[in-house]
Design a binder for these strands. Structure first.
Length: 111
DNA sequence: GACATGACGGCAG
DNA sequence: CCTGCCGCCATGT
């Protein structure tokens, strides 16, 4: 079994720990969970996570800071709106100062 | 079982 | 900086 049985659980928990005004990437989460080369699985899990609620999937973007999953939300502008509401500037579907807003799961556990 | 697709990432050109 | 190709795992046809 390539994926851990609790893969969804782990993804949800990590994403839930992303503080407001910050964003993380699929790759970072995947790497943190041990699926380093399978960032797609993270996106796949998050897609289901939206329906699961409680998971701020809008805080997860790709490595360029691009809001790749905006079309998976109820409204195509929902993701961007949520981010801007939290203080994350978004322009052309891309997080402004992405490096600055980036939050790494390993960084959180590093405390 | 094979082929195509997808919220990605890294590398080469 | 941008584009294209490959690798990755799971799902749908």
């Amino acid at each position: 079994m390539p994926l851990p049985p609790n893969f969804f659980e782990d993804v949800y928990e990590v994403v839930r720990q992303v503080p407001p005004g910050r964003v993380t990437t699929y790759g970072a989460v995947a790497s943190f969970l041990g699926l380093k080369s399978s960032a797609r699985m993270v996106g796949w899990a998050l897609n289901h996570a939206i329906a699961a609620s409680d998971v701020p999937a809008h805080r997860v973007v790709n490595r360029k800071g691009l809001l790749t999953g905006k079309y998976h939300f109820s409204d195509s502008g929902q993701m961007e709106a949520l981010l801007q509401a939290e203080g994350v500037a978004v322009e052309s579907d891309v997080v402004v100062d992405f490096e600055e807003k980036f939050w790494d799961p390993s960084q959180a556990l590093q405390l």
